[in-house]
Nucleic acid binder design. Structure first.
Length: 259
DNA sequence: ATGGCAAGCCCAGCTTGA
């Protein structure tokens, strides 16, 4: 089962580039972030005509996540538990049923800039709720994963210019510690489990020719429970997509699970 | 040394992002 995550930075703006990549990469499941659309305006027919089941958790203008799956989706839930007052659409989960059932969580973790400040407080609070959900997944002993735009640069080698990020909410010690706490529950970070090479990124700013200079950061991640990690056979970043017409500032990251 | 882009929205300049 090929599972991808892709922060598309607006579904309307990616109406060409996203289907093009799906046709080429043929993921069985695609987790999308920043659809920037309400559910009613999401162009689900673009994906249904390609054989995908579509579940969205949208919001006007900002945020918004979705799951596309060639296999049936069951027990879909929307919103990260732990704060009923949180109106931001950043979390969706579903069980994908093929040979085995895989619990798949798609997430768009808050950016948190500027730090310190209320936006950073929201990021850290969200990460605390994420940890609670992660503990439940771990206790369930399911084949499960949490993937998406974490807005976390885990290690200095995950940035081309780590010195540019020292004061940034994506790379502050508290941010990295909160991410590491979740990994330490027993999750496998799929990309680094299979690839130790530096210079591997999933986001390049639109400004200053960042892509042309490979001035990127790696912030889109897969965290796998042990039951999922046992089935992991590959993890790659489709960086070439960044070179196309009207690209997102993120590129797809995908895993292959023997499931 | 600095700034440099893009998307969405009451369509024009603001907010947001990373």
């Amino acid at each position: 089962m090929k599972i991808a995550t892709f922060n598309i930075n607006g579904i309307k703006a990616r109406a060409q580039a996203l289907p093009d990549w799906l046709d080429e990469a043929q993921p069985d499941v695609a987790l999308l972030q920043e659809i920037k659309s309400v559910d009613e305006a999401f162009p689900r027919e673009l994906f249904e005509e390609r054989g995908y089941n579509v579940e969205t958790h949208g919001q006007k203008s900002f945020n918004g996540v979705a799951i596309l799956s060639k296999y049936p989706l069951e027990d879909v839930t929307r919103g990260l538990p732990g704060d009923d007052s949180d109106a931001q659409a950043r979390w969706i989960e579903a069980t994908v049923v093929n040979e085995r059932a895989v619990r798949i969580c798609g997430l768009y973790l808050p950016n948190g800039n500027p730090a310190p400040g209320p936006k950073y407080d929201y990021k850290l609070a969200w990460m605390k709720r994420l940890k609670a959900r992660a503990q439940e997944l771990m206790a369930s002993e399911e084949i499960a994963l949490m993937a998406g735009d974490y807005n976390v640069i885990p290690q200095p080698e995950d940035a081309a210019r780590p010195e540019a990020w020292v004061e940034d909410a994506l790379h502050l010690p508290q941010t990295r510690a909160a991410f590491q706490e979740i990994v330490n529950l027993g999750f496998t970070e799929a990309f680094r489990a299979r690839n130790q090479a530096p210079g591997q990124y999933s986001f390049w700013d639109y400004q200053a020719g960042a892509w042309q200079r490979n001035d990127g950061i790696r912030i889109d991640h897969f965290l796998l429970t042990p039951q999922a990690a046992d089935l992991l056979t590959d993890c790659q970043i489709d960086a070439h997509v960044r070179d196309r017409e009207k690209p997102s500032d993120h590129v797809p990251v995908w895993i292959e699970l023997d499931a």
